[in-house]
Write a protein that binds this DNA or RNA. Structure first.
Lengths: 215, 215, 215, 215
DNA sequence: TATGAATGAGCCTTCATTCAT
DNA sequence: GATGAATGAAGGCTCATTCAT
């Protein structure tokens, strides 16, 4: 009965606690609906301390975005070995993506659902991250196109559109997997991979993509 | 000199004005950041009248979601002739979808960006609409599968995932088209159709889908 | 028992009440130390209403300054008949000044003590008022100089300094009269008139100024 | 690189630094708007040290008032030689006053602008100082009156009023000189001396006071 | 049908002040 | 002698909502 509030921790530790709490509350409620009181309470500190370390609600949210962006990008990059064909790399990246978002639903909600809503200041930060991922995927697709035939058969603009669609599909499936706990990261990745790589047309005819053995 | 505020209009008309204003303000600012004052002012009526007709901010937002949902679903249904194979129907639906969202950016923002953020009460309504669309797409895919071979080669669960991915890709492309005005609804639809129908694998090899002549 | 809070008054009346309360609280405590809560309570309304009508603490304070400035300048102008020599006009003006400040101590405190402190935005307004008074006095002094001999014997710069000194002396005496209730406006005016018109040198020698009979 | 914060200084030195910083910040911003953080930072020490030495914001402000009061009174006393007639002593005192305030604008602002605003506790201290100066001037005027004719021709009450006026005029001119840098201390003193000693009446007629040669 | 007048509640932010080392 | 860590208490401002007409 009664939280024993840990006292006098070094700044770095407290700051981490605050960011953890903030991601959780922002993720659950969104930027506007989240209150600094709630964040402070969840972090186990008083509100003035939050302000002392993170200056304002806006900066706190920015810090959340930056941290979660970096974590997500890092997770995807780490998941992609670099070996194998473009399909294999895409498969690896998707698995890492779905695994990370499934393990960090609030962080993902901050990035996907809330950051784009908050108007100017955050859109900048989150768009930057999203574009980093889109660029990554774009690179994979272009590389795949070069693999298939020496010249880039697909014009840049089309590649961009495809990457956009792929990322959107991934985001949507992440939401699906987040909602229904029986959907595993691997299943989501497989679904998307089939969809993206083989296309509905092929699927209709019973042809489907599957990772090379051992993946 | 100054706005002459029209007086004593029939209820239906006033209600429409209010919903128009609300969709605009909610779409631009999101649920929490939108204020009833702004909505009333944009609608050209006093705040108590808004409450008289629409009861609360929450109900007003719900009404917006319902109206925009219905409009979007209707537009997609209207776009699909029912004639032709599954691919043709999908193509028609996508074109209608992208055309409608491009013409109603605020309505689309309400549905896509903001309604999911607002917590419980709205999630219900928007999820309902989204699921209606997913069900529609699911039906198309299942029909296509039956066309290809008599038995449903794809299990329900997989079909659901595919529909989810397709809708997500469409949403993402709608955002893309909304951002960059040089992207037409038709181009967005074509990009998605290629992606979805042929799959990246086929595209890599130079095979692509294209609508039957006359579409 | 207890204040019956009058309800539903027309806006103009409420606004007056708010300004009255604000002048009182600002006058007693100064800009920073005054709280909007206190002002609202003294005005007998809720805080949001104060904001609805007067927008912000800063604007409220500005409105106070403007109202009290205008009242003071009007009182002084009204007190000066325009007839008689420069000394008589000065005498009339001083009496009006001391009478007004004695009757409106909070208004005077707002102008004299607090408005100069509040940084930029208010300094502008209050300096404008003060300069209006200084200009008025400056005009009187210059007129007197012309009366005495055709050419302006006193250079502008010196006249400005004298006016500054005179106004400062008046302000100081207003504070004195405000502190000690036995000092009447008339006595303060007489003291200052003697000081200013005859100078200490003459006073030392028993010569003093006095208003023409009937003043 | 960066401020090397001097450590372990004797108490007296640290206290001086703090008072210097406090006078500066209080002078620029006023009592309420000044923050202990700003003062501590400007003093180059941590906030707890300020509290260790000076106990509270109120006491710190009091200490500022006392120090600046003492310095001002000392400067004026030092400027008055004691030789010469009353007019000469007044002239010396005014010059010292204007010189000191011009050199210590923040200290002067603390005394003149801010200390009277802060309510009860400070009014006491600053009024004490002001009364010391008023008493000093009162003494001069009374002495002058005795010089002119053996018996005190002016009743005490009138002398008090005159002193009040004189001090007020001086304060006003100090503000004037502080605002316009082209106004020298000597010019301000001369303007006031003419005003006070000769009176506007005499000035109008071309008669003016001037210091005995050598002053 | 329509509105001017009004408010309870809450949120972001800051400040003077203290504790433990 | 000196400080990093921490907070209770307020203050400015806004918002959804209602009452009386």
């Amino acid at each position: 009965m009664g939280e024993v509030r840990a006292k006098r921790m070094p700044r770095a530790v407290r700051e981490r606690q605050m960011l953890d709490a903030a991601v959780r509350v922002f993720g659950e409620r969104g930027y506007r609906a989240a209150s600094m009181d709630d964040i402070a309470e969840l972090a186990g500190v008083s509100k003035p301390l939050v302000y002392l370390y993170l200056n304002s609600k806006e900066e706190l949210f920015s810090a959340c975005i930056r941290r979660e962006s970096a974590a997500l990008v890092a997770a995807v990059r780490a998941g992609v070995s670099g070996a194998g064909g473009a399909d294999r790399q895409l498969w690896d990246g998707l698995r890492a993506f779905f695994t990370h978002t499934a393990h960090n639903p609030d962080g993902w909600a901050v990035l996907h659902s809330h950051a784009r809503t908050g108007g100017e200041p955050f859109a900048v930060e989150v768009t930057a991250m999203r574009e980093e991922i889109v660029a990554f995927v774009t690179g994979l697709i272009a590389a795949a196109a070069r693999e298939a035939h020496g010249d880039p058969a697909l014009p840049d603009r089309e590649v961009a559109g495809l990457a956009q669609a792929l990322v959107g599909a991934a985001e949507s499936l992440a939401g699906w997997a987040g909602t229904d706990p029986s959907v595993t990261a691997k299943e989501a990745a497989a679904t998307l991979m089939n969809f993206a790589w083989s296309g509905l047309g092929n699927l209709m005819e019973g042809r489907r993509w599957s990772p090379a053995p051992g993946a």
